[in-house]
Design a protein around this nucleic acid. Structure first.
Lengths: 341, 341
DNA sequence: CTGAAAGCGCTTACAG
DNA sequence: CTGAAAGCGCTTACAG
């Protein structure tokens, strides 16, 4: 027995298709009595409207695309994604939207994914995350006339609606705290500078250190993984002078760094203070606990998804920006005055 | 200027809609000459068929649903998901399918998500992962007449096609290795026994230890996270007799355990040997490196997705099972003979 | 080898 | 307040 369609409901209720449609969609033009009657009959028949039928009529797929340009391993490790997606989903489900997720390690491959999503009109719009410097996707979605919202830090100046969360503010405050504790040699483990997120954090560290009248400490190339943090430890141990504090691009990197330093026999924070960024749960289990700043990826997800849904409803709207406030600083035992034991 | 439709292509080529459809879909019934001509014209017009139009005609959404019943944090931490999704996508993209991902922390909420996916016919089928003992979803997809493939360990006996990978084989071999090294007190940090994956691994540990004529060591409740591993360390340290080896439910848990034991001043593997399961990259960065067994989530993803696509093409097919072979054992420095330094 | 027609399941002006 | 009709963009028997 095939599922009930709107025709079955109309027939059972003895009204026309349009009346059923109007009634069930809660639009004006049907008496409350008939609406209730139709609703009851629809429920009895277990009628549930077909997304495809509606899509064809409304020219909307009620689907949003999210193409993640990262290797599966990194995507799995980064605490951002799950929480972000959960938040985005909340906003989407409410509006009848769902998310198609595509992973792609390579840039050219992901470009093809965007083209296919747009070409088949599988999605009504896309979320653009992990922005790179001069990101090609910005021109691409424009060419494809694909509504898009970007997620990025504060300096991004793209001709797209932007949901932004400034990690810079957090880094600034962490560096100031270290300076206040008496640190004069503050190093940084940065992410790959192709990403605006890395640039933002590096710049914030650099500017704040200089502003305090200090010579910037070593700048070490890392990335957003624990593994990179561990490798960074080796590099720091190889410096002619050990920095007294290291500001890391994110928590995972900071945790890897702490582990690396401790494995080499150093005391954290006794010999080296370490800070992270993100405020992930794992940082509360390390010993010492990580001093970091809390990001709010779920909120960023919610905001960016609802921005995109708004944009889909009004595609010619001028680009606008929404700032998502950062969470609080998370104090931990991973920093102390230099030389403290 | 709206995008070209099949009507535009037909008009430009001076043929009927059906000829265009047949030609572009590579079906028989069109001369090679016209097919090429139509293809060329379609390319010129940048024609790309609308998924919605096709969906309505074929009664397929060309979309697969994946509802993940886990908290966003855990999902983010578990290395399984990203790799699994990447593998599944490979199989799906080839067949013109895409994946709608939904996260849901609660069981009742996820049940609603399945109902909505089925009701709106947003998806042609679903992948069921993280199977629980007596999983309600098995009855649910049946009630919803929603094609589904389950992903699980070897003892699952569900009336569904099953893509299975036996972690048990790996655990058995790890335990045997420990026995061979001379261990007589082998503990286990298990996952929550609601999950068949936890049960499978616990049972494998228990059976193998007994088979070796040993008294089973302590069985400690943990889960699949690092945090749980760290907590398990405390519990192990509180035992009246320290086990000489601990078999953990997965790598993250094992890494957390190692960290916890080391923080307490214990030597791994000198005082306690530790094994994991999954073979994640992080385990190669710990000190000592983790001894574990490699799972192949990408392959499980590929296999389960293509099974589901097959099932969608033949919904009345009898349930069948595909075994995905486990990867190799990953030797590491985290195990040694008991009392070894 | 090609075309005309029906149909997939909805929504939305437009009449009445 | 309700209905008849057109249309969204395809595919698929069925004729010719």
């Amino acid at each position: 027995m095939p599922r009930a369609t709107i025709i079955d409901v109309a027939a059972a209720a003895g009204v026309s298709l349009s009346t059923v449609s109007v009634a069930l969609n809660g639009r004006a033009g049907v008496s409350e009595a008939t609406r209730e009657r139709i609703q009851r009959i629809a429920d009895e028949l277990e009628y549930s409207p077909s997304l495809t039928g509606r899509s064809l009529a409304t020219k909307r797929s009620y689907t949003i695309g999210f193409v993640v340009q990262r290797s599966p391993e990194v995507m799995s490790t980064d605490p951002f994604f799950g929480t972000f997606i959960a938040g985005a989903q909340e906003a989407m489900t409410q509006a009848g939207y769902a998310m198609v997720l595509q992973l792609s390690p390579s840039l050219t491959e992901s470009e093809k994914l965007y083209r296919d999503l747009a070409g088949s009109r599988r999605v009504d719009g896309v979320l653009i995350d992990q922005l790179r410097v001069d990101d090609r996707r910005i021109g691409l979605v424009r060419e494809l006339r694909l509504p898009a919202v970007a997620i990025g830090p504060s300096q991004v100046d793209a001709p797209l609606p932007l949901a932004r969360q400034s990690a810079a503010d957090g880094i600034v405050r962490l560096v100031r705290r270290l300076v206040h504790l008496g640190h004069r040699d503050i190093a940084h483990v940065r992410g790959c500078l192709d990403y605006v997120h890395s640039v933002e954090r590096r710049d914030a560290w650099l500017a704040t250190v200089r502003q305090a009248g200090l010579e910037p400490g070593a700048e070490i190339q890392g990335d957003f993984t624990m593994a990179a943090g561990q490798l960074a430890a080796d590099e720091i141990l190889g410096l002619e002078r050990l920095p007294t504090a290291v500001v890391c691009v994110n928590d995972l990197c900071a945790i890897g760094l702490m582990t690396g330093l401790q494995t080499a026999g150093l005391d954290v924070p006794g010999q080296v203070s370490v800070t992270g960024f993100d405020g992930i749960e794992l940082g509360t289990y390390t010993s010492p606990n990580l001093t970091t700043f809390k990001a709010t990826p779920a909120e960023v997800g919610r905001v960016s998804a609802s921005m995109l849904i708004d944009l889909i409803g009004d595609p010619d709207r001028e680009p606008w920006t929404v700032d998502v406030p950062l969470g609080p600083m998370v104090p931990g035992g991973s920093i102390a005055a230099p030389g403290h034991r």
